[in-house]
Design a protein around this nucleic acid. Structure first.
Lengths: 93, 93
DNA sequence: AAGTCATTTCTATATATCTAGAACAGTGGA
DNA sequence: TCCACTGTTCTAGATATATAGAAATGACTT
């Protein structure tokens, strides 16, 4: 019980990342379909420029909520289940 | 399983509210000590102007995460456990 | 080497957010 | 009534954020 300073710092990042409609949609999408790459994520969102999507994915990965794995010229994204369960299990519901 | 549109709209509001250090501290504070009034909350934070605190509490209550109950000239604030459990059980940990 | 695809970085702009001072409104007490 | 206290609203300024076009980087294909 009780949360430490690191947790609080990460919590702010995670919640800030999720507190924007496009990013929440991305997180929910990745919670349902794992291992999507940049372009695949972009295709499921309505009209988001590549540069904007990149910006959003960076914020999500910087928070620790989304992991990225490079595979050739593709980068695959996944929800980090541990972090999601800790801060926002709603994503996994 | 599966979340509807209302949930998503509320989730954005709740997460946006929590994605700011002062507001997260307020939420954590209220999760630990229930029923604090405006002034009592202000006293536990370092140097936040009354108008700023009011603004933050409004955002938290608008999201549904914090409930407020008027009692005479005081307003007491509490974490809404149902909403917290749904979106951010981390607060209750 | 040249071309294509995936993703990022640069740059800019419009909008939102955080902050607080000052003024205001409601409640209760002397 | 007058004062003190609780909390909100108004206004404004500084900073942050969201967005996207254009140019750049890196990797695979031919």
């Amino acid at each position: 019980m009780g949360e430490n300073q690191e947790d609080i710092g990460q919590a702010v990042k995670v919640y800030k990342a999720l507190g924007e409609p496009t990013r929440l949609k991305i997180a929910l999408l990745l919670a349902k379909e794992s291992n999507l790459c940049f372009t695949a994520v972009g295709e499921r969102l309505e009209s988001v420029a590549g540069s904007t999507l990149s910006h959003h994915l960076k914020q999500l990965t910087d928070s620790g909520l989304i992991d990225s794995r490079k595979n050739g010229s593709f980068i695959h994204y996944n929800v980090n289940r541990e972090i999601a369960e800790k801060f926002a299990p709603f994503l996994l519901a």
